[in-house]
Design a protein around this nucleic acid. Structure first.
Length: 291
DNA sequence: GCACAGGGCCAAT
DNA sequence: ATTGGCCCTGTG
């Protein structure tokens, strides 16, 4: 039976910051402290409690919380240590963390991340969310256990389900020139050329190489998948926002290329580069810095 | 109304 | 190594 569960004593956890930091697309804002999340073929509502370090999770139960959501929400990682180490780096990093100290890096589904970030290229975030909704509605299954708002929600389609899509079907979902990339991802996953579960065991470098064999997956998208699905926290996804932030803070505004940024991040942030990227992205983007 | 850029990548120089 | 083009949409 499903109901409400209270998640208590969670420091460094802010559901708004977690969901709005650009790592996840299948959510709806209800208010600043309340969000609907579509993941794991389920819908939950998460409500941040004011003036306390606890959150309410609706439409789940204690067993599910422990078996599914605790891992997904990265509850077991100690962010105190991460925050402390990164804050010591410099004033800007320290400010970014003070601003977004409730961010956690979710452990999302590799297949969903692969398709979602293929979609993301050269798109704005609202558009990405729209395309994913279209695809789920067309090729996923309805999640009929939740209708608090009278809206229909759908699972993210499996590779098998999505492989039934034709290019024109995908274009009808407004994915544009990315349609053949999605079909290529379906094909490589279904025929075993790319075994997504194997990548957990590989190094970030090896896994990145495998992911980039899919059409439409370059270094940025591969890094996003590695960070947001596989928890390879040493990677540093470098998009236009992060590039501007890094150039502004650490290179005196000078234009630097991708490989320079990558080697800087590896040297400067080490194994915490992925976390640093999330704090910097959220801080820079929410405040429109370095635009 | 219309130019422009958007969590990039591909293919052709 | 560098650059134009790309589907489509929200924003100014």
């Amino acid at each position: 039976m499903k109901n409400v569960v209270m998640l208590e004593n969670v420091d460094y956890f802010d559901i708004r910051q977690i969901l709005e930091s650009g790592q996840v697309f299948r959510f709806e804002k209800i208010s600043d402290s309340s969000y609907l999340l579509n993941a794991k073929n389920k819908i939950i509502k998460i409500i941040q409690q004011e003036d306390s370090n606890s959150v309410l999770v609706h439409n789940t139960n204690l067993g599910e919380l422990e078996e599914i959501w605790s891992r997904y929400l990265d509850i077991t990682t100690d962010y105190k240590d991460i925050v402390q180490k990164l804050s010591q780096k410099d004033d800007y990093m320290s400010q970014a963390i003070a601003f977004g100290s409730g961010i956690r890096i979710l452990k999302q589904d590799p297949w969903e991340m692969l398709i979602s970030f293929i979609l993301s290229q050269n798109k704005a975030i609202p558009h990405i969310k729209q395309c994913i909704r279209n695809i789920a509605q067309q090729f996923g299954l309805p999640i009929d256990e939740y209708d608090e708002y009278g809206k229909a929600y759908y699972t993210f389609p499996t590779p098998e389900q999505l492989s039934h899509a034709k290019e024109e079907d995908l274009r009808a979902c407004k994915v544009g020139f990315r349609a053949p990339y999605i079909l290529d991802a379906c094909q490589k996953v279904l025929n075993g050329e790319l075994i997504l579960n194997d990548l957990y065991l590989l190094s970030a470098e090896e896994a990145k190489e495998k992911l980039m064999q899919v059409k439409g997956v370059g270094p940025k998208i591969a890094d996003c998948i590695l960070l947001f699905a596989y928890s390879k926290t040493e990677v540093f996804p470098t998009d236009v926002w992060i590039k501007r932030v890094i150039e502004g803070i650490y290179f005196k505004g000078k234009d630097v290329n991708l490989s320079e940024i990558q080697s800087f991040a590896k040297e400067y942030f080490g194994d915490l580069a992925g976390y640093a990227q999330q704090y910097l992205f959220f801080y820079g983007r929410e405040n429109n810095l370095f635009k």
